[in-house]
């Protein structure tokens, strides 16, 4: 029986293709595109202002509200700013770490380091953020206790706390692609650059950076998009500061269509981001 199936499959490559791709395509279409489409459609609905029931008639009121209320412009700018800063912080921290792992550490410690980078991913997101809440607690948090004697203090809950928290959470997602990119980078290119008279910084800027750029882009897609959509970190250590995700979260129970409208913003930003990345050509060499 199995033999027969595989024989038929072998003779009909088209059937083989269909069998292989049906499940993933269905998944992609229904779960992914379907959800996006529903989101987009819902953004044009409105709600009964009293009962909160969704009224399915097309109108642009939500978009009007979103664009006219300065608060939403602020929250978009703030969120994009945070996502960019998180990406920058992650990149700045990840490059030297990944470089050490890929090019300097011995093969044995290399494996241990990769494992160490991966371990935090096993811990619950919430546990980690609540841990940061204890660390950042103004007055009696760990950070204040540590930095107090040096004359510094914890930034408390708010924007800096969110950036610290998110950078901490997403750092592995930046390190791993850069590490993989550096692994692929032949050592003798670095030797060659030095040989031709380039100092280390010059070698980094002219050889390493351009060659791991696709990895940076891959990492930044994680750090940027994950930050853009996050609301839990902001809830727990953001103090009274809110991000786009919080607006969606706040509204989805009260006013689903408006939440959908807001949710189109990160989707649009990501689309723009990907389009810009595509123009750099980095996606082609991933």
């Amino acid at each position: 029986m199995l033999q027969e199936i595989s024989n038929t499959m072998h003779k009909k490559p088209k059937l083989r293709l269909v069998a292989l791709l049906t499940a993933p395509i269905l998944w992609l279409v229904v779960a992914y595109l379907g959800a996006l489409a529903t989101l987009l459609v819902a953004a044009f609905f409105t709600i009964d202002s009293f009962t909160g029931n969704v009224i399915q008639t097309f109108n642009l009121g939500n978009f009007h509200d979103m664009f006219t209320d300065a608060a939403y412009k602020n929250v978009v700018l703030r969120t994009v700013g945070i996502a960019l800063l998180v990406t920058v912080v992650c990149t700045v921290l990840a490059i030297p770490m990944a470089f050490y792992m890929a090019k300097i550490a011995k093969p044995r410690s290399q494996k241990i380091l990769v494992a160490l980078i991966l371990t935090p991913l096993w811990a619950s997101y919430l546990v980690k953020i609540y841990a940061w809440r204890t660390m950042l607690e103004p007055g009696n948090g760990v950070l204040d206790w540590l930095l107090g004697p040096l004359g510094f203090s914890s930034p408390g809950f708010g924007g800096p706390a969110i950036i610290i928290g998110l950078s901490y959470l997403w750092l592995p997602y930046m390190i791993l692609p850069i590490y993989a990119g550096l692994e692929r980078l032949p050592n003798n290119l670095l030797d060659a650059s030095g040989d031709l008279g380039a100092h280390n910084w010059h070698t980094f800027r002219r050889i390493v950076l351009p060659l791991i750029f696709p990895s940076l882009v891959a990492g930044s897609m994680f750090t940027f998009s994950l930050s853009l959509g996050d609301y839990i970190t902001a809830t727990i250590i953001g103090g009274k500061l809110q991000m786009l995700g919080n607006v969606v979260y706040q509204n989805f129970s009260i006013n689903l269509p408006f939440a959908a409208t807001i949710a189109t913003i990160p989707v649009t930003i990501m689309a723009i981001y990907l389009w810009m990345v595509r123009r750099t050509g980095a996606l082609a060499s991933l």
């Binding site: 032949p186 003798n188 290119l189 030797d191 060659a192 650059s193 030095g194 040989d195 031709l196 008279g197 380039a198 100092h199 002219r206 050889i207 351009p210 060659l211």
Partner: peptide, 28 residues
Amino acid sequence: PYERDVNTVFQDYALFPHMDVLANIEYG
């Protein structure tokens, strides 16, 4: 290496893949 007046031709050439021929030669 960058303070020595020697240059190397590598076993597998180690040309910079993101630069064209001219940029590779000009690099030093």
